[in-house]
Design a protein around this nucleic acid. Structure first.
Lengths: 146, 146
DNA sequence: CTCTGTGCAAACACTTTGCAGCTAA
DNA sequence: TTAGCTGCAAAGTGTTTGCACAGAG
């Protein structure tokens, strides 16, 4: 079974477990997100799958992406301002975001996986996600802007 | 000279340096942001200063906050989704954001200041900001949601 | 058969823009 | 005086909601 098929199967299991129905839309949206490396926005996912499901509405895409985020099958990429971007890759990895072209680049730096959350926080807060996130200019934007 | 006055003076210097005019609106908006600990949104800043400048428009507040961000006197707080929140505290510190009530709590953890950016990133990207950001539930929201 | 999900449209919330008059330098 | 700034209004952009019908379980 391929990687995507495996992921799809556990996604379907997660749906069942949460009492959510497995619809072609949900499946395609999840698959599109899984296969994309660009951390797409709702709009980008919509464009990606409208040829597969010609009748799908943008709202369904948007709503479903929120559902994926709520159920934990994907998450909204951290960032400052701008449109929501989604990521179905739950493996430990970090993001570099170009503040000019808004492209998001994955990178993986062991030290940033499971960074130690300070003790005094743990007492008062329930930590759900500790994220290291880097912002700057990507190669091509550095050249353009100077 | 008080802390706020000092900050205000260097803000005014920064304005002059960038060729931006020092207007009462700009000053009050910057001051409100500086004195606030809640990482306010444009709306929150607007509410905070409208009694000082009764004729100020929301747009000026919003526009000015963007200007502060552009000129480097403040920045947009990282997060996932939601309204833009601003911070004029440029000192090293980290944020914990409650995903339920959206409150942002500052904390300071030496290890997270100036975290070492991986070498292979530095070659390809111009790093402007490396952020550690923690998301979860604050004490009161943990109790309510359960 | 039942109950959730979808598509459509409209509403919302937040942010940006254009412009005329105003004001800091 | 003259650039840049402000206030107002309007337009944009992205996201959410309400509802009837369709479709998964």
């Amino acid at each position: 079974m391929s990687y995507v098929d495996e992921k799809l199967e556990s996604f379907h299991n997660l749906c069942r477990q949460k009492g959510l129905k497995i619809t072609p839309q949900r499946t395609e949206i999840y698959k599109a997100l899984l296969e994309s490396k660009e951390h797409p926005s709702a709009e980008m996912v919509f464009e990606k799958i409208r040829h597969l499901l010609p009748n799908i509405s943008f709202d369904t895409v948007n709503r479903t992406l929120n559902t994926l985020n709520d159920m934990g099958a994907a998450f909204i990429v951290e960032g400052s301002g701008d449109v929501r971007r989604f990521d179905a890759n739950l493996e430990n990895h970090q993001h570099f975001k170009c503040i000019n072209c808004k492209k998001i680049f994955d990178f993986s730096h062991k030290t940033f996986d499971n960074i130690a959350v300070p003790e005094n926080l743990l007492g008062n807060f329930k930590v759900l996600r500790a994220v290291v996130y880097i912002e700057g200019l990507c190669k091509s934007c550095q050249e353009i802007i100077i």
